[in-house]
Design a protein around this nucleic acid. Structure first.
Lengths: 339, 339
DNA sequence: GTGAAAGCGCTAACAT
DNA sequence: ATGTTAGCGCTTTCAC
């Protein structure tokens, strides 16, 4: 009992045409909503379509029209591993939301070392009308050349700013981190540390830079930095190293909420209190931030909106519209009880 | 500066044939790895392919061969909203992993009320060779009929067990919940409550049932139940209601880790301790479970494996293999410090 | 082992 | 407003 029991073969446009007593071209026009078909004929054709339960074959349509009505979402494997990252989940949600209004469908490509060529072929093989590259990753530029033959929108700037990537949508990470730093300073903290993200990822770099700018403006030292990989465990470890280096730390900025939650563990296990002894500020405003004990002060990142903007930008790009090469989305501080 | 600057049109099989001095049929054979082509000809053709940077056009190939080499992942919108659910994220990861070894690509369809027909058309329009339906949701059966004309594998059983759905892969939720209940009982807890999930989702039902079975076996009352929607906030609220109903609660089982974390908040804010006053056990073993303070005892759910099994099952189904109608994956208890 | 020829189901000029 | 006629780029018998 395996295989596909499909009842006969699928109805074709030709069968609809025969049943409606018109030409295939007319059926095609009706299916594609052409304005130049008389209302009565439209009715007859639609009846036939319904009766036959006809669904156009995409491969044929795409072959003939040279359009696919599909766009690819490329997710580097490293990101897929961090798929648990709520940021990414929300991003995908935003993309889906924006695409729901259109005729486009989403093809998700989980990129891996081995599959790099597979992905490239897919992108270049006429499977999609455009691609969205979601990445926190260096690998970005691997697809830069693809953007020469296919509309592509990147999420997040390339690591090397000099690398000219046509279209990107990014969050203002540096400014968000500055807000976090300023807030800690305003709260009277003076020994402010940072748990930075990987420095081979733009958000890792930008958030660290924002924090540095803020402390420098306040004439505070910027040496208390340890690095994590955006996971909770790495945040805990980084915090332990920081505390070992400087027990008097009274404030810490973590480059994302997951590491901030990890830092909570490390701080609390030493008997220190939050925010009494150490104030903590995160970044992302994921759903756990509000639920943490105490609730985490953090920088809100508009990930849903980022997904929507990426999708809409790509759709316009495919349509041949003129779209800005870079879109920077604003961030804002959400003050809770950890600071 | 918009549009696609593609340098000339993409190379076709015919161009490769011309350059290699063979027929199109031969090139096709080489591309598809046919064994009946002489080695020297293979070499010449591959050289031409490389020189032209040829990539086969999928639409054409799919039209001619009536295969698409693509499979769909259908995600009901309700799930997409809960996309933050780490379970789901990991599931997708497992699917991607399993598919990486194959020639299949993943097409993700985020299903919405409005787009139901869009999704159906896509599935039936010859866009994919099969579909994976990932759902915690009642809506499942909407696709049951699709499975009559397309190989489909469902993640999670249908809500109504009598509903015969061809192929499903599920986690043994009931048994996992029983393990959790038994553990609480063994720890000497006697006023054991449950924060259940929505009862219109199979995991919600099965996990509650498992907990009940365990308590009944221990001759303990099963009335202390409040419901949440699997979000941390709902877990906190449910816990507050439970504590209001019965202040002497000394153990609680939450149907997922997110609600368990929410319960932490509600328990701690009353000055109670974990596990001193109240032992807590969750379900899922997501990445936050281990990082919680105290680390959360929970039931491990093999979500990565579930994704892999779903994908592999579908691939075999497409190949016409005989595959079991139902696969149930085992769960196990992970004991940490919350109990 | 290789080539010739006939489509796969649809769209898009071009006629009418 | 509707029909006719070519293909879109590839796979696949069927001959050789």
């Amino acid at each position: 009992m395996a295989g596909i029991p499909s009842a006969g073969s699928a109805p074709t446009l030709e069968m609809v045409a025969a049943r409606a007593g018109v030409s295939r071209a007319t059926v095609s026009r009706v299916v594609n909503g052409s304005p130049k078909v008389s209302p009565d004929v439209v009715a007859v054709v639609q009846e036939a379509i319904a009766a036959l339960n006809y669904v156009p074959n995409r491969a044929a349509r795409s072959l003939a029209s040279r359009r696919t009505q599909a766009i690819a979402l490329v997710v580097p494997e490293s990101t897929a591993k961090v798929f648990n990252d709520p940021f990414f989940a929300t991003l995908v949600q935003g993309i889906g939301l924006a695409l729901a209004d259109t005729e486009y469908t989403l093809s998700m490509l989980i990129e891996s070392e081995a599959a790099f060529d597979k992905t490239r072929r897919y992108l270049l093989g006429g499977n999609v009308d455009g691609a969205l590259v979601a990445s926190h990753h260096t690998g970005d530029h691997s697809y830069a050349h693809v953007s020469r033959s296919l509309p592509v929108v990147f999420g997040g700037r390339p690591l090397d700013p000099s690398e000219q990537v046509n279209h990107t949508v990014d969050v203002d990470n540096a400014h968000g981190a500055e807000l976090a730093g300023d807030h800690l300073v305003e709260r009277g903290r003076r020994r402010i540390a940072a748990i930075a993200g990987p420095q081979d990822m733009p958000p890792g770099v930008d958030r660290l830079r924002g924090w540095q700018r803020s402390l420098e403006r306040a004439a505070l030292p910027i040496g208390l930095v340890e690095y994590g990989d955006f996971s909770p465990a790495s945040g805990a470890e980084a915090m332990r190293r920081l505390l070992a280096r400087e027990p008097e730390i009274d404030g810490v900025f973590a480059a994302n909420d997951q590491m901030a939650i990890g830092a909570y563990t490390a701080i609390l296990e030493t008997g220190r209190s939050i925010p009494g002894d150490v104030a903590v500020v995160g970044f992302d405003n994921d759903q756990y931030a509000a639920m943490a004990v105490p609730p985490l002060t953090t920088v809100h990142q508009p990930s849903l909106e980022m997904g929507e903007v990426m999708a809409r930008t790509l759709v316009r790009l495919i349509a041949g519209d003129d779209v800005p090469a870079t879109t920077l989305l604003p961030t804002r501080l959400v003050v809770r009880q950890s600071s």
